[in-house]
C-alpha cells in the first residue's frame, strides 16, 4: 500500500516512466486493433525489429560523424529519425507487395524479421563506440524517460489518438470492405497510407521509449483479449485501451514493488489477463451449454 501511494504521488521520482507506460497502454491498442482485424499480427513482430535496425543504423552513422540534421547532434533525435525512416519505408514496401500479391505474406514478413534482426546486430557490432548505450536504447528505457521525451509522447500519441478517433469510420470501412468504401466515395489508398504512417510513428517512438517487446505486447494482446470478451466495435475499442492502461499501471506497481524489469512485467501481466479471459469465456460458454441442455430436458 505504501508503494502504491508513493507511485501515485505527483513528485514520484519515476513518474515519467509511469506516465509513458500509461500513454503506451492507452494508445497502442487503438492502433493494434487494425493489426488484429486486418490480420497483420506478424507485421507487429517484424516492424519493431525493423525500427531497432533503424536505431542501430542511426547510431552507427552518429558515431562515424554523419548527422541527419546539420544543427543538432542529439543521439535521440538521430535514433528516432532512423527508426521512423526504416519503419515507414518497410511498411510501404510490404504494403505494395501485399497489394500486388507477390509471393506469400508469411514469407515476406519472416524474411523482414530475420533481415532486420541480423542488420541490428551487425550495425551495433560495427559501431566502434558506445555499444552499451546502443543496446540500452534497443532494449527500451522505460525507467528513465526525460521530460522532453514524455511531452513529445503526449503530443504525438495524443494527436494520433484524436486523429484515429475522429476518422474512425473511414479507417474501419477501408479495412473491412474496400469495395464498399470505394462506392461511397472514400479514397482507400489515402486512408491506407495514413494508417501505415501512424503505425510507423507509433512503433518508432514506442520502441525508443519502452522497447520492441513491450510495444509488440501492447499493440496486440489487449485487442486480442478484448475481441474475446466484447460484442460490437465500440466496446472492442474501449475495452482494448482499458486493458492496456490497467496492465500498464498494475505492471508498473508490481515491477516497483518486487524490483522487476517493467517491460517484461507488463507483457507477462497482459498475457495473464489474456489467459484468464479465455478461461472465463470457456466457462461461460460451458455454463450456457449446460443450461441449454437442462432446458431441453425439461421441455422433453
Amino acid at each position: 500500500m505504501e508503494q502504491l501511494l508513493e507511485i501515485l504521488n505527483p513528485h514520484f521520482l519515476l513518474r515519467n516512466a509511469l506516465y509513458a507506460g500509461l500513454i503506451v497502454g492507452f494508445v497502442c491498442p487503438q492502433v493494434g486493433i487494425f493489426f488484429v482485424l486486418r490480420r497483420m499480427i506478424l507485421l507487429g513482430i517484424a516492424l519493431p525489429q525493423v525500427s531497432n535496425a533503424g536505431i542501430a543504423f542511426a547510431f552507427l552513422l552518429h558515431t562515424l560523424g554523419w548527422h541527419f540534421f546539420y544543427h543538432t547532434e542529439s543521439e535521440k533525435v538521430m535514433a528516432l529519425t532512423g527508426s521512423i525512416i526504416f519503419t515507414i519505408i518497410t511498411i510501404f514496401i510490404l504494403a505494395i507487395l501485399e497489394r500486388k500479391r507477390k509471393g506469400f505474406t508469411e514469407n515476406r514478413i519472416g524474411f523482414t524479421y530475420v533481415l532486420a534482426g541480423a542488420a541490428s546486430i551487425l550495425f551495433v557490432s560495427w559501431n566502434p563506440y558506445g555499444q552499451t548505450e546502443v543496446l540500452s536504447m534497443l532494449k527500451g528505457e522505460i525507467v528513465s524517460v526525460p521530460d522532453v521525451y514524455l511531452w513529445s509522447m503526449v503530443a504525438i500519441y495524443g494527436a494520433i489518438f484524436i486523429f484515429l478517433t475522429g476518422f474512425h469510420r473511414n479507417f474501419i470501412l477501408v479495412s473491412y470492405d474496400i469495395d464498399m468504401a470505394v462506392t461511397v466515395g472514400k479514397k482507400v489508398i489515402i486512408w491506407d497510407i495514413l494508417l501505415y504512417i501512424i503505425i510507423g510513428i507509433i512503433i518508432s517512438l514506442g520502441v525508443m521509449t519502452v522497447g520492441p517487446l513491450v510495444i509488440f505486447g501492447f499493440l496486440l494482446i489487449p485487442p486480442i483479449t478484448a475481441r474475446m470478451v466484447t460484442r460490437g466495435i465500440l466496446p472492442f475499442c474501449i475495452v482494448s485501451s482499458a486493458i492496456g492502461v490497467t496492465a500498464s499501471f498494475i505492471g508498473f506497481y508490481i515491477s516497483y514493488r518486487f524490483d522487476l524489469p517493467t517491460g517484461p512485467t507488463d507483457v507477462a501481466l497482459l498475457s495473464v489477463i489474456l489467459v484468464l479471459s479465455y478461461l472465463a469465456k470457456m466457462l461461460f460458454s460451458m455454463k450456457r451449454q449446460c443450461e441449454g441442455k437442462i432446458k431441453l430436458k425439461e421441455n422433453a
Binding site: V36, L37, R39, G166, F167, R169, N170, I172, L173, Y176, D177, M180, V184, G185, K186, R227, T230, R231, G232, I233, L234, F236
Partner: peptide
C-alpha cells in the same frame, strides 16, 4: 467479409451512412 471483425448487425448497417458522415 472477414468474420474476425466483432460488428453487431446494426453496426454493419451503420456503415451505409459513413459516406455522408462527418469526421
Amino acid at each position: 467479409l472477414d468474420e474476425i471483425y466483432p460488428f453487431t448487425a446494426e453496426e454493419v448497417v451503420f456503415m451505409g451512412t459513413f459516406g455522408q458522415a462527418k469526421p
